[in-house]
Nucleic acid binder design. Structure first.
Lengths: 298, 298
DNA sequence: GTGTCCGTGTAGCATGACTACATGCTGGAT
DNA sequence: ATCCAGCATGTAGTCATGCTACACGGACAC
C-alpha cells in the first residue's frame, strides 16, 4: 500500500520542481524529501527522479504517480473538510420504528420535511409495536422509536433510554349507524354499559388499555371480536358487530354505516419518541424529533 | 493530514462490523486496530466508535469517514495498478487461488509457462473453493481467483470484481464396470432414473449443481455417499456404491472397475478468473490470465 | 580550479506502531 | 445469582521508521 506522506513528497517535488523547494513547502529538510522519494522508488520498483544538471527531473512513472497523488490528496482533503463540516450537521442514517397509526399518520409528513431540510440524512422506517421497538432501541438496532401509551397506563421505559413527548392523540368511539348513541355529539363511557367491543388481540397495548379503562369505569369488558388493524375493526363495526375505540392519528376513511362519536372525558394517548441516552447528542435524532413535532402540530 | 493506514483500519471496522473482525482481516491484533481508530478520533476531534453491547457501533462521523475511506483506498489501489501497468514489466508477486481440479489440472502448466516467460514474477497458489476465494479476492487478500460455475447455476460475483472466462470443462459420469449402462458410448441423464449418486458434501458448488441438474431432469437426487475429493468418489464408484459426475479437468487416473461415459447433452462448467477491478491493469494479472488460457488450450 | 548550489548518503535521536498481557464490560448459559 | 466466553480498551516494552544534522559528490559560473 502506497503511503500518503510519500505521495505528498513526490507531489510537492512535481509541483515545485525541485527537492529543495518541496522541502521548503513541506517544512522539512531536503534529506527527508529525498529519502521519502527513494523509498517510494523502492516500493514501486520504478525510478522516479533522475538528476538533471543541478536539479532533478521526473520520470514518466513519477509524473503518472504524481498525477494520481494529486487526485488522491485532494480526495483526502475533501474527506477532512467534509468531516469537519459534519461536526453538528445532520447526515448519515437513522433507523426509525413507529407503531402503525403513527407510521401512517405522523411519519409521512415528518419524512417529507426531513427529506427537504436534511437531504444528507437517510431515514428508514419500520412499522413496529412499542413492545418490539423499545428493546430494539435499547440495544441500538433502531435509533429512534415512536411509541405510545395511554394516560392511565404508562409504558415502561428501560434504563438507558430517554423519551420526549411528540403529541397527544385523542380517540373516539366508533358505533354502528343504527346504534342508539350513534347520533350524539359526545358520550361518556359509563353510558356504554353492556356493549360488545371490538379490539386488538390480547397483549396489544390498546387492548390492555381498553380493558383497564372499562374496568376503571366499572364496566366489564366484553370483547367478542379482535382485529389488530383499525380498518378491520371499522368493517366489523359497520356490520353491527360491536363498538370500537379509534384514535384520530392515522385514522383511515370511515366506511358507511359507522358513526364516530367523541368521548368525555377524552380518551388520550401520549405519543413520544424514545432513543438511547448515549445517542441523545446526535444531531440526526434532534432533527428527527423536531420534524416529528412539526408534523404533529400541522 | 489523515493517515491511510488508519483509514484502512476504520474502513475494515465499518465493513466487517467489529474491531476483532477488522483485526483478523488486517492481520493485526485488536489492540492495534483499537489504537489506530483512537488516534483517528484524536486527529479528527470526533468520536468514531462507541461501545454497543459487546461490540462497537459507528457514529455518523465514522460512517461518513469510512465512506470516504472506501473511495480513497480504491483510488490508491488504482494508482498502484496503473503504475505497474505503466512499467509494463511482469514482476512482483501474485497470489492465486484455484479450486481443486483447476489447481491440479490447470495451474501446473500455467505456472510452468509463467516461470519461463516471466521469471521475475513470483506466483503463489492456494487451493480454495470459490466460496472462499471470491471474498478473499474482493478484499484483496488474493490477486486472482480461479473459480467455476455450471452452465445452469451461475456464481454470484460481488461488485468490484471482474471476471474473464478461461475455459469450459465437460464432465462425464463414472459408473461401476458392471453397471447396465457402463458400456455405452454416451448416455442421457433421463436414463439414470433411480440411480444412487456419490457427490460432494452439502454446500459445495458441485453438489448443489448436481442436485439442481437432476431435479431439472425430473430425477429425485438420491445421494447416499459424500466425498469432497474425486479420487474418493471414484473409489466408491469402483466399489459399486453408486454413480458420480467427474469433470475432465484435473481428472486423476480412473481406478479399475470404473467406466467413464459421456453425457448428452454435455454437462459443462465454466472456469474463469476473477480479480479486483482496481487491479485490472496490472500486467501480472494480464500475464497470468494469458498463461492460464494457453494452458487451457493445450 | 574554486565557490556555490543542489541532491544523496549516514549516524543518531525521537516518534510511533505493533504485540503480549491485563482489565473491564456484556450477554448468555448453568 | 453466578460463572464463563467474547469483545474492546489500556499499558509496557520492543522494534521499525522518519527526521535532523552533517558529510559528500556532481554541476554550473566565474
Amino acid at each position: 500500500m502506497l503511503d500518503l506522506e510519500r505521495l505528498r513528497a513526490l507531489n510537492a517535488v512535481a509541483t515545485y520542481g525541485s527537492v529543495s523547494a518541496a522541502a521548503d513547502v513541506l517544512h522539512v529538510t531536503t534529506s527527508a524529501v529525498s529519502q521519502q522519494v527513494a523509498k517510494l522508488e523502492r516500493e514501486t520498483g520504478q525510478k522516479l527522479l533522475e538528476r538533471n544538471g543541478r536539479g532533478v527531473r521526473l520520470t514518466d512513472a513519477a509524473a503518472l504517480l504524481a498525477a494520481h497523488a494529486e487526485r488522491i490528496l485532494s480526495m483526502v482533503e475533501a474527506a477532512e473538510s467534509d468531516l469537519e463540516a459534519h461536526r453538528g450537521a445532520v447526515v448519515g442514517e437513522l433507523a426509525v420504528a413507529a407503531f402503525p397509526t403513527a407510521a401512517r399518520g405522523l411519519m409521512p409528513p415528518a419524512l417529507s420535511l426531513m427529506a427537504v431540510e436534511h437531504p444528507r440524512l437517510t431515514v428508514t422506517l419500520r412499522e413496529l409495536e412499542p413492545h418490539s421497538s423499545v428493546p430494539l432501541a435499547a440495544r441500538g438496532e433502531i435509533d429512534l422509536g415512536i411509541v405510545q401509551d395511554w394516560f392511565n397506563v404508562p409504558l415502561a421505559i428501560p434504563d438507558g433510554l430517554v423519551k420526549a413527548p411528540l403529541l397527544d392523540d385523542v380517540a373516539d368511539v366508533a358505533l354502528p349507524a343504527g346504534h342508539p348513541l350513534a347520533d350524539r355529539d359526545v358520550i361518556d363511557l359509563a353510558g356504554m354499559r353492556g356493549e360488545a367491543w371490538i379490539a386488538q388481540s390480547a397483549g396489544a397495548i390498546c387492548r390492555e388499555w381498553l380493558e383497564h379503562t372499562l374496568r376503571t369505569a366499572s364496566l366489564e369488558p366484553r370483547i367478542n371480536h379482535t382485529a389488530d388493524e383499525y380498518a378491520t375493526q371499522l368493517a366489523l363495526v359497520a356490520a353491527g358487530l360491536g363498538c370500537a375505540v379509534i384514535p384520530r392519528l392515522g385514522r383511515c376513511d370511515v366506511p358507511p354505516g359507522v358513526r364516530i362519536v367523541a368521548v368525555r372525558p377524552a380518551l388520550t394517548r401520549h405519543v413520544y419518541g424514545v432513543w438511547r441516552a448515549e445517542a441523545a447528542r446526535r444531531p440526526a435524532i434532534r432533527a428527527a424529533v423536531a420534524a416529528l413535532r412539526a408534523a404533529a402540530g400541522a
